[in-house]
Simulated scan of single mutants.
Amino acid sequence: MLLAGLRSPHPYESSTMKRTATPHLAAATALGLAVLAGCGGSGTDGSGSGGAPAAPPATVTLVTHDSFNVSDEVLETFTADTGFEVEILRGGDAGVMVNQAVLTAGNPQGDVLFGVDNTLLSRAVEGEVFQPYRAAGLDLVPEELRPAGDVPVVPVDTGDICVNYDRGWFAEQGVAPPETLDDLTAPEYRDLLVVENPATSSPGLGFLLATVAAYGEDGWQDWWRRLAGNGVEVVDGWEQAYYDHFSGASGGTGGGDRPLVVSYATSPPAEVVYGTGPEPEQAPTGVATGTCFRQIEYAGLLAGAANPEGGKALLDFLLGEDFQADVPLQMFVHPVREGVPLPEVFTAYGVEIADPYTMDPQAITEGRERWVTEWTELVLR
């Protein structure tokens, strides 16, 4: 989950953070999509009513979230190789994008959807958004990153939601930064952590899922009670947490007083990329590696796509070496294809999360709403 602008030391927020639309926005979206659906043809061959089927369009449409980014020269390579021009149709944040895709299932706005992650995947699958296609290059993706069973999507990138810490603050205070979830509830970290609300933020949801995975159904609530008692601060979204409350944000506007924040494992190299001045010996922020939840973003061929052949070619391209090598510095996530080297700034300033918390997408679907409701009762009321 992605560039939101040069201000962002981790731009994933704008695509995947504020996933929950307000009821008014959801209603407006549904109305607009109903109008769009009504304007479409009755078939998927582009021929309208009667007559011979039209020739396949020379354009393939990628439906994605607002912060999808790719280099122009990489897209030009796809066009040169396939003859298809790529039209990028951005559909808001990932949650709204998936809701739109469900509402238009079978009569989609494009050919390929990119940006549904493992917290939302089962919603799209149950909505019959996708049609099957096995992309070329899938065999070069590690088995643990592929969806289980016959889920008709391909993984494209991964990212880890983790607690970040302000190295300077902890050095000045002579306090060791936390490493694990258990550490965060210790007295020495009282009033130091800011997190995002899981009802309104994807990193907030990922962090909640990490605690459910770590402590189980019988233990996560107690952990959050202890964290709430230890002075955790809750805000709506990542930008507010990182820029206004986190003391280690180079682009911060409010001079934040919290040296711990829920962000991403790739935020430290992003701080270096977007920082000013000479290249530092180490990133100004670090990662508590025992707090991380693994996100995986997927793409799929939309059911009823007007240009299925172009869509298949685009899915092959998303797993190809050119696009996969472009992913890290465009969206600050990791490629899924084995053998694709990371940029030096990732290897020099980033950290590999060897054992992140994970959860089956179906388990997320079955528990998500209940966990968020219980979290709200525990932490906010």
Rank of each mutant, 00 (worst) to 15 (best):
V351G: 03
G229A: 03
S14F: 02
T365M: 08
V372Y: 03
T64V: 13
L3E: 02
A249H: 08
G277H: 11
F130W: 00
K312M: 11
G206Y: 04
A21K: 07
R368E: 12
E217F: 02
L89V: 13
F332I: 12
V156L: 03
G92P: 09
I296Y: 07
L113C: 04
L33T: 10
A265P: 03
M359F: 01
E374S: 11
V151T: 15
L62F: 01
V194F: 00
Y215L: 06
A27W: 11
V125K: 02
P142Q: 10
Q109E: 05
I353F: 03
C39I: 03
E374K: 13
D66C: 09
Q295R: 14
Q109I: 13
L184N: 09
V98P: 13
A213W: 01
Q324P: 11
G219W: 06
L184T: 09
P284A: 09
F317R: 07
G252A: 10
H10T: 07
F346Q: 07
D183H: 10
D316G: 05
G252L: 13
A283N: 13
Y242Q: 13
N69F: 00
T158Y: 07
L181C: 14
Q100L: 03
T291R: 15
L33Q: 11
G83M: 12
D218G: 08
S202P: 06
L315H: 14
D222S: 11
S47I: 04
T180P: 07
A270E: 10
E297L: 06
V86G: 04
R19P: 01
I88T: 15
V379Q: 07
V273E: 03
G256R: 01
M359T: 15
E188Q: 13
V261D: 06
Q221I: 03
L314V: 07
G254M: 10
V327N: 02
F246M: 03
D157W: 01
T29D: 07
F170W: 02
F207L: 01
D222F: 02
A27Y: 08
G311V: 14
A54H: 12
A26D: 15
D160L: 08
P132A: 14
L192Y: 03
V129F: 05
V232L: 09
V70H: 02
G137T: 11
V262A: 08
P335L: 02
P57E: 12
V156T: 09
A136R: 09
L192Q: 14
T29L: 10
F293C: 10
S202E: 10
G168H: 07
A348C: 02
V163D: 00
G277R: 10
P308I: 11
H10R: 00
G254R: 12
